[in-house]
Design a protein around this nucleic acid. Structure first.
Lengths: 107, 107
DNA sequence: TCTTGACGCTACATAATTTGTAGCATACAT
DNA sequence: ATGTATGCTACAAATTATGTAGCGTCAAGA
């Protein structure tokens, strides 16, 4: 279910890290989940609520993948970003800033 | 087909720019297409080839969306990133760099 | 003019993914 | 035992992606 770095993924046989990342992030809800977890930890249900009530089926599937990729961890406080998850979440902030400028000019 | 900033998108009713972005980038092939176009321009078929022969159906669908979002333009040289597209592509480079470090430690 | 080839793109059937609802099993407190 | 919260699962319906074949247009060559 989760992708291993170095092995082929959807749409790329090279296993290059960025391709693995594109494969995972290019799935619905993955980026949103990482985004919301930036100010975690959250319980499964709390996270579900923050993600506009994404179905538990998919949330569980995504969390499983993210945990296998060492981006998310489940503690007794709830689900939270690992060190790597935090870093990745940080790069999303750049996206956020860009999107605001972009939206401003497009409007 | 394309998402307008400020209007609701899948999984978010706020229309916040970052949510619009998550909606679009969280579709298969979108990030990959932007990534490959960084050293464009490419013809439809050349781009398809670079994207591991993604189906023309989907490539066309994505390019349509990206053009409506002012990220991609079709010139007589082929498909290429607009100014905004270049900027967004630039933020993907950060992802690339991060993914390499991440893969190195996970391996 | 008749091919030949490249262009962007579309139709359509099949396969894979996502959604939404209901609910399970466990644990812990009342 | 009863209520409540936890993470998580089953399953059918809806949506999205894939792969193949091929269309209509245009420009260059014979």
């Amino acid at each position: 279910m989760a992708k291993k770095v170095g092995s082929p993924v959807r749409g790329s046989t090279t296993g290059r890290p960025i391709m693995v990342l594109f494969d995972v992030l290019g799935q619905r809800w993955t980026m949103r989940i990482l985004w919301e977890l930036r100010d975690g930890p959250y319980t499964f249900r709390a996270l579900q609520e923050r993600c506009d009530f994404v179905s538990p089926t998919l949330l569980n599937k995504r969390l499983k993948e993210l945990r296998e990729m060492a981006l998310v961890d489940l503690t007794d406080e709830g689900f939270m970003l690992t060190r790597w998850g935090e870093e990745l979440g940080g790069t999303l902030v750049a996206l956020d800033r860009w999107s605001i400028r972009w939206a401003k000019e497009l409007a």
